[in-house]
Nucleic acid binder design. Structure first.
Length: 480
RNA sequence: GGCGCGGUCGUCUAGAGGCCUAGGAUAUCAGGUUUUCAUCCUGAAGAUCACGGGUUCGAAUCCCGUCCGCGCUGCCA
């Protein structure tokens, strides 16, 4: 029996990180138990829902690596947009009316508002007073036929409910916690607590993993499940992500959207990693992991119950770690494509190669741009920029250049990293220079640049003929 | 107000009665490495486990109360 887990966002804004995290948990659980991940669009609030937001949320999810098995455009339990399921909701609402579990309510909003305020003033629970509760069905239908608008209200059961929450354990709601509540608005649109149940049931959802703010809603949903004599799914209410002020993250603040972090340079692997550990812990206390690894260890018993404060500094660190990992594999493989087959890179003894690889990797991590790095290593052409000229014009530089020409005359492969050390020391002692004249001069001579990756790495990796060619051109520069 | 849920270093967390004079990570600080770098290494400091009572030979862990925080209390989701 495999699970079916749904993520049900409402398209009233961009995907924010709280939603992204919930989606991740749902996705992870679906994958962990070899089940299906379903995306349902809860767009029953027609004034705030926009197709554009739906698209951007799906995009952001995709960017994170969270793709749905069923949802808009695919799946057998569709449609997956609530706005396209309206007839289903009204049909089931009629069933409830006929069973006596719901009734038409003609009270106006202003009337309701007034009553609610009065009750609150007396410090009483602002429950619906039941004005329309005992209207006969015949009369209600007659009034509707006469053109009156009616909402449909659910008759709340007078009893306590309890259920076992996957993250919080046993939860009990006392009797009398809610009054009769609306399930279908007077304009025919369903209300969240109701369509959520209908859909979860019809879509055969096995696990509902959602944010803690929905915990109290569960009571109403439990009642609706009972009215249909349906066994509810498992519920898991995950703690909230809060801001530094410990308040619920507002969607209005720009820095809470997935898109914001993407634009900040956060890579998806890192955001996934960071978001998951905000409220869930790895069984081996690992800090850095990827989504595949997560799927293999993910379980529902490692959630934290208390709210988590978003810490941008840690996100930044996690991002850095993933940048490393990413470079370790893909970028290095990429670089190898550009390195000529006969390059010493492949021929040298193993130790040299390992050192070279780690050095090179590090440079690529720092500079991100592969092409840039390759340019530094393999382009023999010297571009005499003003910065380069300034260094070349320093007294010590010509000496360094001719010394290096001598050195390179006698070697077939670049010096080993350990030998680079000797070259630097020799130059230092021979010409009695140190500090920036020494290092900038060396850099200019070997790399033909005023700045760039670590000098020792560059000397150890740049092919001999490339360096020779550069030195020659610089020599020519002096001749002029 | 009512109801619900939480409360371990600044932050994310480990912890399921003795392994905890509370571990890790991050941030901070100090050293070192790197004459550039969205590096790296070492070390320090940082939590009377919200508070008060129980239960127990023994409690961060179990029970009760208090306080604080948050959530819900909509014809929003």
């Amino acid at each position: 029996m495999s699970c079916r887990v749904r993520f049900a966002p409402s398209p009233t804004g961009y995907l924010h990180i709280g939603g992204a995290r919930t989606a991740l948990y749902c996705y992870l659980w679906a994958r962990a138990c070899n089940g299906s991940f379903i995306l349902r669009i809860e767009d029953t609030d027609q004034s705030r829902s926009k197709r554009e937001f739906e698209e951007s949320q799906i995009n952001d999810l995709h960017w994170l690596g969270v793709d749905y098995d069923e949802g808009p455009g695919k799946g057998e339990y569709g449609p997956y947009r609530q706005s396209e399921r309206l007839n289903i909701y009204s049909e089931y609402a009629k069933v409830l009316i006929n069973k006596g579990n719901a009734y038409y309510c003609f009270c106006s909003e202003t009337e309701l508002e007034r009553k609610k305020e009065a009750l609150e003033k007396q410090n009483l629970a602002p429950h619906y007073d039941g004005t329309c509760r005992n209207l006969s069905l015949e009369e209600a239908i007659r009034r509707i036929e006469q053109g009156e608008r009616a909402a449909i209200r659910f008759k709340a059961y007078k009893k306590a409910y309890s259920f076992r929450d996957l993250v919080r354990g046993e939860i009990t709601f006392p009797e009398d916690m809610v009054g009769d509540f609306i399930i279908l608005r007077s304009d025919g649109l369903p209300v969240y607590n109701y369509c959520c149940v209908i859909d979860d049931y019809l879509m055969k959802i096995s696990h509902v993993i959602r944010a803690e703010e929905h915990l109290p809603n569960t009571l109403r949903q439990l009642m609706i499940y009972e009215s249909f004599a349906v066994t509810p799914p498992f519920f898991g209410h995950v703690s909230l992500i809060v801001g530094e002020d410990r308040q619920k993250l507002s969607k209005r603040r720009g820095d809470t959207s997935v898109d914001y972090y993407r634009k900040e340079g956060v890579i998806p692997e890192a955001l996934v990693n960071y978001l998951v550990q905000l409220g869930w812990s790895h069984p081996q206390e690992k800090d850095i992991y990827n989504i595949q690894e997560l799927i293999s260890v993910f379980s529902l018993d490692r959630f934290s119950k208390s709210p988590a404060v978003l810490d941008p500094a840690k996100l930044k660190w996690v991002n850095g770690q993933h940048l490393h990992l990413q470079n370790d594999d893909m970028v290095l493989a990429e670089v190898k494509k550009y390195i000529p087959e006969n390059h010493q890179f492949y021929q040298q003894n193993n130790e040299w190669q390992l050192t070279a690889i780690s050095l090179l990797k590090k440079q690529i991590e720092l500079y991100r741009e592969i092409n840039h790095c390759l340019e530094w290593l393999f382009n023999p052409q010297v571009n005499f920029t003003p910065e380069l000229k300034m260094i070349l014009e320093h007294d010590a530089t010509p000496k360094i250049v001719s010394y290096l020409q001598e050195v390179y005359k006698n070697i077939g492969t670049p010096p080993l990293p350990s030998e680079v050390e000797n070259i630097i020391t020799t130059v230092k002692e021979k010409f009695k220079i140190k500090g920036s004249p020494l290092f900038l001069g060396l850099r200019a001579a070997v790399t033909a640049r005023a700045a760039g990756p670590d000098l020792k790495t560059m000397i150890a990796l740049t092919p001999v003929d490339v360096v020779k060619s550069r030195l020659e051109q610089i020599h020519g520069f002096y001749a002029k």
